[in-house]
Simulated assay, not measured.
Amino acid sequence: MSAAQGLRAHVVVPREHFVVDVALQVAAGETVAIMGPSGAGKSTVMQALAGIVGMTAGEIEIDGRVVDRIAAPRVRTEPARRGIVLLGQNPRLFPHLTVRENVAFGPRAGGVAAAIARSNADEWLDRVGLPGAGGRMPHELSGGEGQRVAVARALAAAPRAVLLDEPLVALDPDTAGEIRRMLREQLQGTTTVAVTHDAGDAVALAERLIVVERGRVRQHGQVREVLAAPASAFVASIAGLNRVEGVSGDGGWRWGDLRLTSTDTASRALAEKDGVALAAVFRPQDVQIVGDGESDAGAWPARIARLEPTLAGMRVHTESCRVEVSLSEAAGLLVGDPVLLRVDPADVRFVPLA
């Protein structure tokens, strides 16, 4: 790796059933999100970057300085000396220190005078929305307040990079929203890698998204672009989309009895050649149940496999796709019922299979 600002890494760590082998590059001041199924290796990547987990191959470079390299000449920098801070679900505040002393701990350990470190700590507490909280003890804080203090403590140490490993997952929705807004404001200009299971977090915090499945990068790119063109069933699920794999044919797309066309220019170009492997992508709420087995041009037959209540109504699962309907539309539907489904070509996109 050549010297550059930001974070560059190639992480290789064996797991029980697969090897985590992920390369990533984060520009100085950029935030990159990592998403993937449970057990895909996301946290392993973060722990390797922080120096908590050892690698068997690869290299980690931060702001032009190699902090970990397996090949000769071997480099192994201790976690505390990497300039990389890892924040997880647990704030891990020192229980015997006040909030102010927790935030001042890093600068003081780095040689900053106590009075200056404490004054800076109070400034950071103001910035994260906890003015005047310096004298409180960690056990007096709510979960959201603890995470705010953890962010202040991390940033007060002036790290080269911040790693966020699902810090919002244990918080209630309102608190998580407040912390998300605070993170977006306070991490401006800080090189950041954020692991999350929530597409909303990725959109709110990050410029780019990396999807990891079974230890490998499955898809990467601008956050909204990745979510709009899912390369796997997992990405489609977090984006709230149907994704059905089929082939182009007759100027459209087909999978079994399902035939779809699209008015999207790029999608139509992909479907021009017959036999090209494509995925059809469309939203569950754009699918209509138009009949119970009677003929209806442009619709395809399906059978209800599962009914799942949602806040807005009912999610109807079929062998081909999911359908979102209101409670009134769901009235009378039963598992096993045959139905006819239709989606407007304007709501369909085709994407090539990776």
Rank of each mutant, 00 (worst) to 15 (best):
Q5A: 15
L7N: 07
R8W: 09
V11N: 14
D21Q: 12
Q25S: 15
G29R: 10
T31L: 00
T44M: 14
Q47G: 12
G51S: 02
I52Q: 02
R65L: 02
R69Q: 14
P73M: 00
R76S: 08
T77I: 03
E78T: 12
P79S: 04
R82A: 13
G83V: 05
G83W: 14
V85W: 03
V85K: 02
L87S: 07
Q89E: 12
L93C: 07
H96Y: 07
H96V: 04
T98K: 11
V99C: 09
R108M: 06
A109L: 04
G110L: 05
G111Q: 08
A115Y: 13
I116G: 00
R118F: 05
E123Q: 12
W124N: 07
W124I: 05
D126C: 00
G129T: 05
L130Q: 09
L130I: 03
M137S: 12
H139W: 06
H139D: 06
L141I: 04
E145P: 04
G146W: 10
L155G: 06
A156G: 07
A161R: 09
L163H: 07
D165T: 11
A170K: 12
L171H: 02
D174S: 09
A176P: 02
I179D: 03
E185D: 14
Q186K: 11
Q188V: 06
Q188R: 09
G189F: 12
G189Y: 14
T191F: 07
T192M: 01
T192K: 04
T192E: 03
D198E: 07
D198H: 08
V203R: 00
A206Y: 00
E207V: 06
E207W: 03
R208I: 01
L209M: 09
V211R: 04
R214T: 12
G215S: 11
R216P: 03
A229Q: 02
P230K: 08
P230L: 08
S232Q: 08
F234P: 03
R243A: 13
D250F: 10
D250V: 06
D250P: 01
D250N: 13
W253I: 10
R254T: 06
W255L: 13
L260T: 03
T261M: 14
T261K: 14
T265V: 15
L270H: 01
D274A: 15
Q285T: 07
V287C: 05
L307W: 12
T310F: 11
R315A: 15
E319D: 15
R322A: 14
S326P: 09
E329A: 15
D337L: 10
V343Y: 03
D344C: 13
A346P: 13
V348H: 06
R349M: 01
